[in-house]
Simulated scan of single mutants.
Amino acid sequence: MNPSELPVVALTLGDPAGIGPELIARLLGQTDATQHANVVLIGDPWLWAEGQRIAGVRVPTTPVDDFAAVRGRAQPQTPAWLAVDTVSPEQVQRGVAQAPGGASVLQVLNACMDAAQRREIDAICFAPLNKFAMKQGGLKHEDELHHFAEYLGVTSYFCEFNTLGDLWTSRVSSHIPLKDAASYLSQERIQAATRLIYRSLQAAGVAAPKVAVAAFNPHGGDGGTCGREEVDIIAPACEALRAEGVPVGGPFPADTIFLKARDGEYQAIVTMYHDQGQIAIKLMGFSKGVTVQGGLPVPITTPAHGTAYDIAGQGRADVNATYNAFRIAARMGASVRSAA
């Protein structure tokens, strides 16, 4: 790709008390990242220096004054560096969720979303954050996805995707008590989740993805003897999707559906609640998984693992998931740019 045509991808350092700064330093210091995107890194100078020190790398960057200066740079093979002051070293205790760190994360992510709305960047990839720290620091939603959606004015269906290699998953309900999961099931939500992951996979470069839909009850409800959600809600939703041309299979029992995906029958799985998909994905590849914030006007990705407070500062963080998250952001950002 011509360097001038590369998508602009913003990278953030994540929670300053976690492994994020080290991961971004490893990403930019040991990979071919700038071959896939025109990268702009945004963060506090002291935190970026600390991340490089922990990772044992030194990453050359080109300072910029704002996001608007990134697109069309003469040398996009060197990451752009946008310095901000959001938190001081004295406010951060490594390995501890604290309000100043959470507020820092929010400030940086909001700046990136502002830039995306101005079309100065095409995608965002953020290093791991901590929801508790963010709530202490001002987050008013159950998770970052709902913050993104409100900030960007999204009123249509949105949900998290979790990906592992060629397999993507979405879910009908997410960060809610399990006792409430059944109340979130509806034909409309299942259809919306399926259409969204189907379109998002196409945007990520999969021409004709096949989608499997999970059942809700054990054994897929056993014909209604073990719950009627499959009979009354899920199966009719699948039939309606097939009628409109979406290649959907199911509902399949949740304890076998991932075997079908593992064997290549499907590229996406729609699950009914959080752990139904998360347990399988993380068991299959915890250090490689990616979370994609689905349904937003700008692609936003992050490694699926957390801040790993227990190993922060030790130089042991595995960069694989961060690299995968960055590559998905770059591919989806390229799709956004070509459509503009």
Rank of each mutant, 00 (worst) to 15 (best):
M1V: 11
E5T: 15
L6D: 12
P7E: 06
P7A: 12
V9T: 09
A10F: 06
L11S: 02
L11M: 06
L13K: 03
P16F: 04
I19R: 06
G20H: 10
E22I: 04
I24A: 09
L27T: 08
G29V: 10
G29R: 05
A37T: 02
N38D: 15
I42N: 07
L47I: 15
E50M: 13
Q52H: 14
Q52F: 11
R53W: 08
R58D: 15
T62N: 07
V64H: 06
F67K: 15
A68H: 07
V70D: 08
V70T: 13
R71Q: 09
R71C: 07
Q75Y: 13
Q75E: 14
A80C: 08
A80F: 04
A80S: 14
S88F: 15
Q91W: 05
V92G: 04
G95C: 04
V96E: 10
V96S: 06
S104C: 15
L106V: 11
L109M: 14
A111F: 08
R118W: 09
I121K: 00
P128F: 10
N130Y: 03
K131E: 09
F132T: 13
L139K: 07
L139A: 11
H141A: 15
E142L: 15
D143V: 04
E144V: 14
H146K: 13
H147V: 04
Y151E: 13
Y151D: 12
V154Q: 01
T155C: 08
Y157R: 02
F158W: 08
F158G: 03
T163A: 13
R171Q: 14
S173P: 01
H175W: 02
P177Y: 05
P177K: 03
L178M: 14
A182M: 13
A182I: 12
S186D: 03
S186N: 06
R189Y: 00
Q191F: 04
A192K: 01
T194S: 02
L196F: 00
Y198T: 01
A204E: 09
G205M: 09
A215Y: 03
N217Q: 06
H219V: 04
H219T: 08
G223D: 05
G224N: 02
R228N: 13
V231N: 13
A237T: 11
L241D: 03
G245T: 05
P247T: 05
V248C: 06
G249H: 08
P251L: 01
P251K: 01
F252S: 09
T256N: 03
F258C: 05
F258K: 01
K260E: 12
D263W: 02
D263N: 07
V270T: 00
A280M: 00
I281Y: 00
I281S: 00
L283A: 11
F286G: 00
F286Q: 00
P297G: 11
V298Q: 12
P299G: 11
A304F: 10
G306L: 12
T307A: 09
T307I: 14
N324C: 02
A325P: 10
R327E: 03
I328V: 12
I328E: 03
R337D: 12
R337L: 13
R337M: 14
S338P: 14
